[in-house]
Design a protein around this nucleic acid. Structure first.
Length: 949
DNA sequence: TCGCAGATCC
DNA sequence: GTAGAGGATCTGCGAC
C-alpha cells in the first residue's frame, strides 16, 4: 500500500478558516467565535475521510520572532496582531488536533513551510507520496507532489487537488524559478514582510516579472526612473532579505522519524468533550456516527473580551448571531448555520410533556372561550392555506395560556359554519383588555380581519421582540425555538411537503396532525415571549417594542388590507407603447453591433461591446470574470459609440416594463381589485420597513419614462384624492440635531436649501453665487457623509479627481466640525460598547467594529455612522404613523393611510377632507419626534401618486 | 433552483 | 495597501 504523508500548515489553515468565515454569521458558543475551530475540524475530517492518508502531521510556525523572522524590525512592527477571536480559538484548535491524535510539529526558528519542505524532501527518499495542505495564497506547495487547496466553507472545505503544473497555469507563471522570484517580492504578499516604501505589491510583482528576478531588477535599476529608481536602489538590501525570508528551505535542521507520523484512531473521549463544549453537534455525528449527542457535555462559558481585555457586551441573550454584513453571502451562510443548528440534537415534540387538545365541538370551544376570557394575555396562531394574508383561507386557530398546554380549533371551509365558530371567539379576540401574543401577528390579524374578526388589545410579537434584540439576525420561529428553547418544532414540510409546485395544502392535512403542529406553535411562541421579556427589560429596549413596534402592527395590517388602486388600463396602454420603443431600440442596436444577441444578457452584451466593438482598451471585469456593463460604466462610454445610449435606453425600458408596467396588474387581488403590498417590519437592520409582493417602495420617479408608472397609482374612486406627505431632508436634519453642529443647525433654522447652504460654505461664497455644479457637489457630499463615504467614493460619484474630492471634503469638515466630531464619537462609542443606537434607543450591534481586517472593520464603521441616522428617521416616521392612525380613527375621518416609502406617507382621502387631513398629517409628522432643528414636511394632493408627490 | 448582475427606490 | 456609500426588492440570465 502507498505511504501517503499529509503535512498541514497549521497557522495558515487556521487563519484561512477564520478569515473565510469572518463574513459569515458567527458560530458562537458561550460568546466565543467557534467558526475557525469548525473550519479547521472540517479540513482534518475531509482529509481523513476522502484522501486515506497513512501519515499526517500539523506544522505550526513558532509565533515568537526567530532567526527567520528576526533582525527585521519592520517584520515585528508590520506583522498583524492575531485577531482576538482567533487567538481565543487557538487553544481549541490544538485540543482538536490532539483529539484526532495527530502529531504537532513546531517550526522552532523556521517557517512552517521550511519544515514541510524539508520533510517532504526527506519523505520522498523513503518513497512516500507527500501532500501539502495549505490555503491557496501560499506558494509553498511547490515542494510537494500534490497540492491541496483548501477553501473553508461553513459546511467544511472543498478540497481541490492540483498538480504543480496546474498551479503554474492557474497563476499564469512560466517556470518554477519564476515563482520563487515572485516569492521574494517586496510588499506584504508573503506573511507581511514589509516592502519598500513607495513600491506596492502589484508594482513589485510586475517589475520582478519584467526583469526576471529581484537580483536582475536591482542590477538594472539604472533603467528605472524617478521615485521608482530611488526606492529600488535605496532599499535593495531589504528586497533581497525579503526574498531570502520567503524562500522555502529544503534543508532545515529537522530530526524526525516520519514513520512516527502514522495515523492513529482519534481519542474519542477528548473529542467528545471538545465537541460538547463547542456545541458541534453535526460535526460530532460526522466523526462518531448518528448516535452522537452532546447532551452529557457541558457548554462552554467564556466572557468575550476586546483587544484591551475589556469585556465586550454580548447582545442580550444573543446565542448566535449574524455578522454586521447584510449581504447575500452572509444570508446564505446564515441559512447554512441555521441548518447546522437545526440538525443538532434538539428536543422535539416527542421528548416533551405537553397537553395539546382539540376543541372541535361547541362544548369544548365554549369551555376554551371561558378559560381565555379570564386571562390577562394569551398566545394565538392561525393556520391558513397560504402565506398571502389577503388571499388565503383560515383553516384553524390555536391558543395557549401556559407552557405545555394548548388548544387547536379547526375552522371548516363552509363559510357559514366558519363564521359561527369565529363568532364564538370574537369576545376574546376582540377584547381590548386581553393582550395577544404571537409570532408575526400582522399576518394573523389580517387573516382574521378578512374573516370579519377585528383583533384588539395590546400585542406582543415574538418576531419583533427578537428583531429589536438582534436586528441583524433572522427571526423565524423554528430558528428562535432552536436557539432559545433548544427545541425543534414539527416542520411544516412534514405536513405539506417541500416548497414548490408539489407543495400541498393545510386543508388536506388530517386534523390530528395539524393539532400538534398548530398547538405546538402557540406553545413555543408563548415560551419565547417569556424568554424575550426579561431580555428586553434588561437591555432597556422594552419601550421600543411596547410603544412602537407592537402597536405599529395594527397600522401596517390596516394599510396592507386597504391596498391601493391601480389604473390597469393605463398600464396596459403604456406597456404597448414601451413594447414598440423596445423593438425599435433592439433593431438599431443589432444594426450598430452587426450581430443579433441577447441585449438583456450582461455577458453577451459585454462581449459585443468590448470584444467586437472594442469600446475600451482595458475594460473592467466583475469578480466572475465577465465584463462590467453597469449603468455607470456605460455612461462613460456613451460618447464613444451611439450604440451605448441605445443600450441604456433599452435597459431602462425593459426594466420598467417587466418589473412595473407588466407586473403590477398581475398583483391585483381579484377579491378587492386592489394591490396589497406586504410590509416587513423585521428585515432592515436599521429599523426601516421594507415592502414586497409587490415592492411599492421602489416605484420609479427619477426619469420621465419611469414617472409614468406613478400615474397608475390612483385614488379608490373619483370622490377621493391621493395625498402624499414627505419629510424634507430628514436624515440631514437628524445628523445636524444629533451632532449639534452649529453651522448645519443654523442653516436649517434659517430655512435654507441645505445643499446650497453647504456649497456656499464649502466654496466660501454667498448662497446666491452658488452654481448648479457646486450645489451638486455639495449635495453629493451631504449624502456621502450619511453613508460614511471616502474621498475615493466621492470622486467616482462626481467624476472629479481624488484631490479635488478631498479638498471638498476637507472644506466640508472645516465648515461643519460637529459632523466630523459626531463621526469619530459614534465609531468610538461603537468600539467601546459594541453597538450604536438611534435617538429612540434602537440598537444595532457591530461586532466587527474592532476587527483586525481593515475592510471588515471599515464596513462596521460606516454602519456605525449610518445606522443611528437612518434608524432615527425610521423611528420618527413610525411614531408619526402611529399618531396619525390614532388621530384619523378618533376624528372619524374617512381617510386611509395606504403607503409608506421611508420618508413619505400616502393617503387615500375623501374629497372635502383634504385640508383637514393635510394639516393633521403635517402636524403629526413634524411633531412625532421633535428635534433641535425644524422638521419640515411637504405635502400635496392629486388624482395620481405622481401629481400628489 | 440559485447566484450574479443590474435595475429601481429612499 | 486594503476597498471604495447606508438600507432594501425584483428580474432575467445562465450554470447546475
Amino acid at each position: 500500500m502507498d505511504k501517503r504523508l499529509f503535512l498541514l500548515d497549521g497557522m495558515a489553515l487556521a487563519y484561512r478558516a477564520y478569515f473565510a468565515l469572518i463574513r459569515a454569521p458567527r458560530m458562537t458558543s458561550g460568546g466565543m467565535n467557534t467558526s475557525a475551530v469548525f473550519g479547521f475540524a472540517n479540513t482534518i475530517l475531509d482529509l481523513l475521510k476522502k484522501e486515506q492518508p497513512t501519515h499526517m502531521a500539523v506544522v505550526f510556525d513558532t509565533q515568537a520572532p526567530t532567526d527567520r523572522h528576526i533582525g527585521f524590525e519592520g517584520y515585528k512592527a508590520n506583522r498583524q496582531e492575531m485577531p482576538e477571536d482567533l487567538s481565543v480559538a487557538m487553544p481549541y484548535i490544538f485540543r482538536l488536533i490532539e483529539g484526532f491524535n495527530i502529531p504537532v510539529l513546531t517550526s522552532d526558528g523556521f517557517e512552517a513551510d521550511d519544515i514541510i519542505g524539508t520533510l517532504a524532501k526527506k519523505a520522498e527518499k523513503e518513497s512516500f507520496i507527500t501532500y501539502m495542505v495549505t490555503p491557496d495564497k501560499d506558494f509553498g506547495q511547490l515542494v510537494s507532489d500534490k497540492i491541496f487547496i483548501y477553501k473553508p466553507g461553513i459546511r467544511g472545505g472543498d478540497v481541490e487537488i492540483m498538480g504543480v503544473q496546474e498551479i503554474l497555469e492557474k497563476w499564469s507563471i512560466d517556470r518554477v524559478e519564476q515563482v520563487i522570484d515572485i516569492l521574494g517580492l517586496w510588499g506584504d504578499a508573503v506573511d507581511n514582510i514589509p516592502g519598500i516604501p513607495g513600491i506596492g505589491e502589484k508594482t513589485a510583482k510586475q517589475l520582478i516579472k519584467t526583469y526576471g528576478s529581484i537580483e536582475n531588477l536591482i542590477a538594472n535599476s539604472s533603467q528605472l526612473k524617478g521615485k521608482q529608481k530611488e526606492n529600488v536602489e535605496a532599499h535593495a538590501e531589504q528586497g533581497l532579505l525579503s526574498k531570502r525570508l520567503a524562500t522555502i528551505l529544503l534543508d532545515a535542521p529537522v530530526e524526525l522519524d516520519i514513520e512516527k507520523l502514522l495515523i492513529e484512531e482519534p481519542d474519542r473521549e477528548k473529542l467528545e468533550q471538545l465537541f460538547a463544549e463547542l456545541e458541534f453537534r453535526t460535526l460530532g455525528k460526522r466523526v462518531f456516527g448518528e448516535e452522537f449527542t452532546i447532551a452529557g457535555g457541558q457548554a462552554l462559558r467564556t466572557q468575550q473580551t476586546d483587544l484591551f481585555g475589556n469585556d465586550v457586551p454580548a447582545p442580550p441573550g444573543g446565542k448566535s448571531r449574524a455578522a454586521g454584513l447584510n449581504n447575500k453571502e452572509a444570508l446564505a451562510a446564515e441559512a447554512d448555520a441555521t441548518a447546522f443548528a437545526q440538525a443538532a440534537t434538539l428536543k422535539t415534540i416527542e421528548d416533551t410533556e405537553h397537553r395539546y387538545h382539540l376543541a372541535d365541538s361547541p362544548e369544548t370551544r365554549a369551555a376554551l372561550v371561558r378559560l381565555l376570557e379570564k386571562q390577562a394575555a394569551f398566545c394565538f396562531d392561525t393556520e391558513t392555506t397560504g402565506t398571502d394574508a389577503n388571499n388565503c383561507e383560515l383553516v384553524g386557530l390555536s391558543f395557549c395560556i401556559e407552557k405545555g398546554e394548548a388548544w387547536y380549533v379547526p375552522i371548516p371551509s363552509d363559510m357559514e359554519e366558519a363564521g359561527r365558530i369565529l363568532n364564538e371567539f370574537k369576545p376574546v379576540l376582540e377584547n381590548e383588555r386581553i393582550r395577544k401574543i404571537g409570532q408575526n401577528l400582522k399576518f394573523d390579524i389580517i387573516v382574521l380581519r378578512c374573516c370579519g374578526v377585528n383583533v384588539a388589545g395590546k400585542l406582543s410579537d415574538t418576531m419583533l421582540a427578537h428583531y429589536i434584540l438582534e436586528p441583524d439576525g433572522r427571526h423565524g420561529m423554528d430558528l428562535l425555538a432552536g436557539n432559545y428553547l433548544a427545541y425543534k418544532p414539527v416542520s411544516i414540510t412534514e405536513l405539506i411537503g417541500k416548497k414548490g409546485k408539489a407543495q400541498g395544502n393545510m386543508r388536506d392535512v388530517v386534523i390530528e396532525t395539524i393539532k400538534d403542529y398548530a398547538a405546538e406553535d402557540a406553545d413555543i411562541t408563548l415560551q419565547l415571549k417569556e424568554v424575550f421579556d426579561p431580555l428586553l427589560e434588561e437591555s432597556g429596549l422594552r419601550h421600543l417594542v411596547e410603544d412602537i413596534e407592537n402597536p405599529l402592527i395594527y397600522v401596517l395590517a390596516e394599510m396592507e388590507r386597504e391596498g391601493v388602486a391601480i389604473d390597469k388600463e393605463g398600464l396596459a396602454l403604456y406597456s404597448r407603447e414601451l413594447e414598440n420603443d423596445i423593438k425599435r431600440l433592439e433593431e438599431s442596436i443589432y444594426e450598430y453591433a452587426g450581430v443579433k444577441f441577447n441585449i438583456a444578457s450582461p455577458r453577451q452584451l459585454g462581449d459585443v461591446l468590448f470584444e467586437k466593438l472594442l469600446l475600451e482598451p482595458k475594460p473592467k471585469k466583475t469578480k466572475t470574470g465577465q465584463y462590467q456593463t453597469g449603468e455607470d460604466i456605460l455612461l462613460r462610454l456613451a460618447t464613444k459609440h451611439d450604440i451605448v445610449q441605445h443600450i441604456l435606453d433599452f435597459r431602462q425600458l425593459q426594466k420598467l416594463k417587466s418589473t412595473y408596467v407588466d407586473a403590477l396588474p398581475l398583483m391585483i387581488n381579484p377579491r378587492t381589485g386592489r394591490v396589497h403590498t406586504s410590509y416587513n417590519q423585521a428585515v432592515a437592520a436599521t429599523g426601516r420597513l421594507s415592502s414586497n409582493n409587490p415592492n411599492l417602495q421602489n416605484i420609479p420617479i427619477r426619469t420621465e419614462k419611469g414617472r409614468e408608472v406613478r400615474k397608475a397609482f390612483i385614488p379608490r374612486d373619483k370622490d377621493h384624492v391621493l395625498l402624499s406627505a414627505d419629510y424634507s431632508q430628514i436624515e440631514l436634519r437628524i445628523i445636524a440635531a444629533i451632532s449639534r453642529d452649529e453651522n448645519m443647525m443654523q442653516a436649517f433654522i434659517d430655512g435654507m436649501d441645505i445643499h446650497t447652504a453647504t456649497a456656499a460654505k464649502v466654496y466660501g461664497i454667498s448662497p446666491e453665487e452658488v452654481s448648479s455644479s457646486q450645489r451638486r457637489n455639495a449635495k453629493a457630499v451631504n449624502f456621502g457623509i450619511i453613508y460614511g463615504q471616502s474621498a475615493f467614493g466621492l470622486s467616482q460619484n462626481l467624476g472629479i479627481s481624488r484631490t479635488e474630492a478631498k479638498e471638498v471634503i476637507d472644506a466640508y469638515f472645516k465648515q461643519y466640525p460637529g459632523i466630523r466630531q459626531y463621526m469619530t464619537d459614534t465609531v468610538e462609542f461603537a468600539r467601546s460598547k459594541g453597538y450604536v443606537q438611534t435617538i429612540m434607543g434602537r440598537r444595532r450591534y457591530l461586532r466587527d467594529i474592532n476587527s483586525a481586517n481593515a475592510t471588515v472593520r471599515g464596513f462596521a464603521e460606516r454602519n456605525a455612522i449610518n445606522a443611528p441616522i437612518q434608524g432615527s428617521a425610521a423611528d420618527m416616521i413610525k411614531i408619526a404613523m402611529l399618531n396619525i392612525h390614532r388621530e384619523l380613527n378618533s376624528s372619524k375621518l374617512g381617510t386611509k393611510m395606504i403607503l409608506q416609502v421611508h420618508d413619505e406617507l400616502v393617503f387615500d382621502v375623501p374629497r372635502g377632507e383634504e385640508e383637514k387631513v393635510k394639516t393633521l398629517v403635517e402636524e403629526q409628522m413634524k411633531n412625532a419626534m421633535p428635534l433641535e432643528v425644524p422638521v419640515l414636511v411637504e405635502s400635496g394632493t392629486g388624482s395620481t401618486w405622481l401629481e400628489a408627490h
